[in-house]
Nucleic acid binder design. Sequence first.
DNA 1: TATGAATGAGTCTTCATTCAT
DNA 2: TATGAATGAAGACTCATTCAT
Lengths: 219, 219, 219, 219
Amino acid sequence: MTTSLKRKSTIRRKKKERITEQRKRQILDAALTVFSRKSFGAVTIPDISQEAGVAVGTIYNYFDNKHDLLLSLVRTYLITGPLVDLVARPPQWDDAEFMSSFLENRLTSGAENIGRFFFLFNEIQRNRELRDEYMADILTPLLKVLEKRVESGVASGAFHSSNPEVAARGLVGMILGFSLLRQIEGDRSPFQSTSNDEIVTEVTNLLLNGLLSRKDQSQ
Amino acid sequence: MTTSLKRKSTIRRKKKERITEQRKRQILDAALTVFSRKSFGAVTIPDISQEAGVAVGTIYNYFDNKHDLLLSLVRTYLITGPLVDLVARPPQWDDAEFMSSFLENRLTSGAENIGRFFFLFNEIQRNRELRDEYMADILTPLLKVLEKRVESGVASGAFHSSNPEVAARGLVGMILGFSLLRQIEGDRSPFQSTSNDEIVTEVTNLLLNGLLSRKDQSQ
Amino acid sequence: MTTSLKRKSTIRRKKKERITEQRKRQILDAALTVFSRKSFGAVTIPDISQEAGVAVGTIYNYFDNKHDLLLSLVRTYLITGPLVDLVARPPQWDDAEFMSSFLENRLTSGAENIGRFFFLFNEIQRNRELRDEYMADILTPLLKVLEKRVESGVASGAFHSSNPEVAARGLVGMILGFSLLRQIEGDRSPFQSTSNDEIVTEVTNLLLNGLLSRKDQSQ
Amino acid sequence: MTTSLKRKSTIRRKKKERITEQRKRQILDAALTVFSRKSFGAVTIPDISQEAGVAVGTIYNYFDNKHDLLLSLVRTYLITGPLVDLVARPPQWDDAEFMSSFLENRLTSGAENIGRFFFLFNEIQRNRELRDEYMADILTPLLKVLEKRVESGVASGAFHSSNPEVAARGLVGMILGFSLLRQIEGDRSPFQSTSNDEIVTEVTNLLLNGLLSRKDQSQ
DNA sequence: TATGAATGAGTCTTCATTCAT
DNA sequence: TATGAATGAAGACTCATTCAT
């Protein structure tokens, strides 16, 4: 009976933990939805609580304060996901294949979300804690992986001779900036009737082959 | 005498307008300085008034309210400047020269400031009025100019065959994204000891010639 | 069988009541401990529940609300105890002995606790119900006993001729005020290295013999 | 004219300072009034603002926060006034005269106010900053003055041999405690029909001559 | 009976805006 | 025109109390 009781209590604890995680997620999802509508500063806790369908006080049962909620938001949605996998387990393809695949992946799955997280770039710039964490966990590792690929590609002759640091930031930067422009243009983007595949192909092509045609290229 | 009086009053009015413009500018400059220190939501009117060296009430003599001040900020710093000139009076160079010169110009003079103005992009996205204005006055014309250049470059054989809409957005996007990354990396950027000239050269090179070396390029 | 059942149920009920009283006491003790750490306004029900080792909800099984808990606190710790005994069964000593023994008793056992209960005096002042109860049950009877002793002492020639009402309040007041000062001085009290016996002797001496030496005393 | 302008500005600044002081005082007076009705924790800023006849925000133009308001309250009403004068410039009377005059003074002018400030003793006990300041500025100097007087009185033979530290605290304590009892008894005090002079005389007599009549006194 | 997550009224505090000087 | 004290609506956050388990 003691065993049974113990088991029961363990089961209950686990169940409780699961519920807690679900609630956190429920609130974070609501927060993200609201943040994509209003700017961060304009979002109020009641906004979030209403969207999440819980009381204001409930939010404070799961997060210390608004700032903590923001941090959790970043940790949950940015500092996880496919990018982290890519960095942690870079595939064994050759450098050109890797680049082309990386660009396609980011332009396809990353671009759709950039609008929702755009407000975070602002916060990241102003909030030292957030910035340090984002850089340490995401940006720097990603850039390092790309730099290494560029270096090895240059060494093997597959790539132009390039400064790897600039190239890595150029690649990531274009993905970021291109997605940002799509976000700003919104409804008025000329890509409404362009297939996403074509866009990805074109951008990848631009980055891999450049703008100039072969004959004009000056090595 | 009436004429003389009128003339005098005209002179006075002009002088007054000039002073008013100076004051507005003084306040907007202060606002921009403050925005670069604190996150947008954290900036208060007293902050700005202190930075500008005027009283809180004075700001309300020149701007209707905080939102109006923000609008003026965008109009003054984003929807004016060298970009407008470039679009209004595109130089007569050939397409390749134009592109290379455009990239250098933007990466040199634009990049330093993009961090300071970045928070405005957020506002642009949330504020329909602002976004429409920004797109109509700046973004769309700029993209149009670039698209035309790409088209003519492709026609002349100077450029790879490309979708001009994608290419134009790719170019602007990379400038935007690359500058944004530099801003985020800040002190930890690996470019601390790299000359700005080299960076500009490398990015320009990446965009014009692509990442892949000649022998691998598939037209 | 009915009888047996009834008896059993009576026993059970008594046991239950005893357990209930224990729980109440456990919570009140915890409340007192917490109040001695934080200011009254800063104490929360979770604070008390944690100190008592019970859940928040459990407290509400024994007390209607926070105010009720406070009332019980006063009733349990102020409106009971040795003072009540003293008043209910005054010893048969002569008046001088009684006074000296009263002072020693109060200064010894009462003084240590006065700091812990002091915050209750505030509540007593604000809460008419509580004040009436405290006065009716404790303060007035105590003062009456002392007044009677002073009267009889004056009549017997043992005491100076005094207004008994003033004298009684002077005695109680000094015990109260002296203990309060010790509480406020806390660590910085000069009595750290003075034995409690000496302090009690000195205070008792001051009250019984006064400050002036015999030769200066004006009857 | 420059001189005239300067003078004008100086006058204005002084006027402004005076108005600021008046406002602070106005708010502090209101706070004191409200605190004497409700316990400290129960008082809200709107309570005070309403009593003071100003807006909530105005209070924050003069005090950093509620805690700062409390500190100012203590500084303004407790750490100033006749007690400070007494301590700073002790009169040249002989020791017995001094004591008797001190007691009369405190029992007369101090006692009426003790009720209004009673809540502060609670705060003083819980709030280290407040306690340190109150002790350093008021309590310790006062006790030191009294201790010295007792010492010199004992040396001159005017007073009984006493521990000066205990005696000083006994004197102050009785004033405190006696006033406190009057406050608690309120309407039901038996002193309603007793002249204040008589009360003061009796308490002073008790402290100076003690309770025991001459013949019983044991030196 | 015990529990503790959920609730939302109530608090402190901020700050855009006004207006008398 | 410039000033800055006064204003009070609005937001972050707390905590006494409830109630489903």
